[in-house]
Nucleic acid binder design. Structure first.
Length: 198
DNA sequence: GTCCTGATCCTCT
DNA sequence: GAGGATCAGGACG
């Protein structure tokens, strides 16, 4: 089956991202992340996100702009991809108006399209182990450092509106951080088996 | 320049 | 549940 983008959904416009970061993080649940490459198309439904706010000690931008985090201060709707723990990458969506250093970390996807590519890239058999973590979904989707700063409102990497969901959104504290660990800025779809952690 | 830490994941016990 | 892989950014001097 071929992913029929125009028939299934429309690409989220820049205005979607140019809003309060917490609202963007919540509203991204149920949206579809798509990556079109020469090898084929991979796509997944976003089921878990985290908001990183300016003034929030866990946010890379909390101490001002640097070479690494400058994309976060740029126009919304772009990708912020950074290298972590010597071996992994994490994928974020820049939110809020230009000049504000905020972003939404995509933590988990429900695989939809290009499962075979994901299986090959991840070297894992189980569907639930393909995209249930920020570094895992980056691997499965074929996202690399070169995607840092790319515009997500157009091909080859973009986010489309998903079908309207009635699933309950659960709010918890964020995973894997020390500073700002008590802030309720993680969101996921209740009872979804593709999230990274309960 | 050195030192330490980290928005992680995997393997082993 | 613990520890290792492996490196860039940031703090410090």
């Amino acid at each position: 089956m071929v992913w029929n983008m125009s028939a299934e959904f429309e690409i989220l416009p820049r205005a979607f991202y140019c809003r309060d970061t917490v609202a963007v993080a919540r509203d991204l649940l149920g949206a579809i992340l798509v990556h079109e490459t020469a090898a084929g198309v991979t796509a997944g439904r976003i089921v878990e996100t985290e908001a990183y706010l300016q003034g929030d000690p866990a946010c890379h931008a909390s101490r001002g702009m640097t070479r690494r985090n400058r994309v976060m201060f740029g126009p919304p709707g772009h990708a912020y991809v950074y290298f972590i723990y010597g071996m992994y990458y994490c994928f974020n969506v820049v939110s809020a108006p230009e000049g504000v250093g905020e972003a939404v970390l995509i933590r988990a996807l429900e695989p939809i399209e290009g499962i075979l590519h994901m299986l090959r890239r991840r070297k894992r058999e189980k569907l639930t182990e393909l995209c249930n973590g920020p570094a895992k979904l980056v691997q499965a989707m074929g996202i690399t450092r070169s995607h840092n700063g790319v515009d997500l409102t157009g091909k080859p990497l973009y986010i489309g509106m998903g079908k309207k969901t009635t699933e309950t959104v659960v709010t918890t504290t964020r995973i894997g951080i020390r500073a700002g660990a008590d802030l309720p800025l993680r969101f996921y779809l209740k009872n979804n088996k593709f999230i990274s952690k309960k």
